[in-house]
Amino acid sequence: MEANLDADLERTIRDLAPRVLRYAVARTGDVSAGEDVAQESLEALVRHWRRAGPPESAEAFVFSIARRRAVRAVIRRRLWVPIEHAFGRHDDAPDPEAQAVARAEHVRVRAALARLPRKDREALLLVALGQMTSAEAAVVLGLSLSATKMRVHRARKRLATELGNEDDD
């Protein structure tokens, strides 16, 4: 019985990990902060699962936590990054040209995402990167299903326009 529970938990975690990682990296704008957020959120699920059994929706549980932690990570980053730069502690790793080219798409999409309204962007990230259904995203966002669908639809349309406009430039 316990072995089955552990197997279910492991399967859930392995399924959720890349989804929450993508969401957290996009939400924080930083790979290492995104990894921290994803890991903490998944750890919270593991603890809850082992203590009280699986939550009603593992997706909603993990993404609700990831969303809150991502906000904190963004605030922390905004506070610390200028200080780290001032003390010369920013990442000095070489950024070769190939890496820069590979990141170009990432930067371009990030810039387009940043131009979306915050709430629309949040809904889109949960659905597109977190691969949640609109109903699950609605639970995480505390919105009605129709409102969530509308936000996601609006965000997709606007993002497509933003990316299209850049291509035209």
């Binding site: 392995r14 890349p18 798409e105 990167l129």
Partner: peptide, 19 residues
């Protein structure tokens, strides 16, 4: 979006293992 924020399998595995 998924292409822009692609996550390596090794990273996902590491995060899962730690969790």
């Amino acid at each position: 979006l998924r292409d822009a924020f692609a996550v390596g399998d090794d990273v996902a595995r590491r995060v899962s293992d730690h969790a």
